[in-house]
Amino acid sequence: MSQLQKYAWFNLAVAGVAVVVYLVLVPIIGPEAALGAFGVCGLWGFGGAFLREKSPAKVVWDERERMIWARSTRAGFAAFWGVFVIAAMAPFFVLGPEGSISVKILPWYVLFGMFTVWVVKSLVILLLSRRGGAHVSE
């Protein structure tokens, strides 16, 4: 398993833990307060440790890893855009043109947008790594 795959599995594990903690907390403190469980995602910041060069002889990053990284990042942000559009348009269609939403929802848009980026990016890393990276180098 490459370091990039370990990084992706780490991200997905953290995301999974966040979802489980949220589901556990919902019946205890309610759905809104339980959203704080997604603070677990701050652990993603430690994922960079997987991508650090451990010794000059052992290559961690090469052209294929860089391509997988670029393509997975693009996929993650494309998914983010999809989620953002749905999140922005849903209130219009659900509440109607005269409806209103609380501004406290807006930070959650950002949170779940970034959650989407990380999860989709990690899934695409695993998919492209399994398939050999990609068909053509960039």
């Binding site: 490459s2 090469d62 294929r64 398939r131 050999g132 990276g133 990609a134 068909h135 053509v136």
Partner: peptide
């Protein structure tokens, strides 16, 4: 100067 995974992908014809 690449990872072993890249050599594997090359040999399998999955990476240009």
């Amino acid at each position: 100067g690449v990872t072993r995974q890249t050599i594997i992908a090359l040999e399998a014809g999955r990476y240009v």
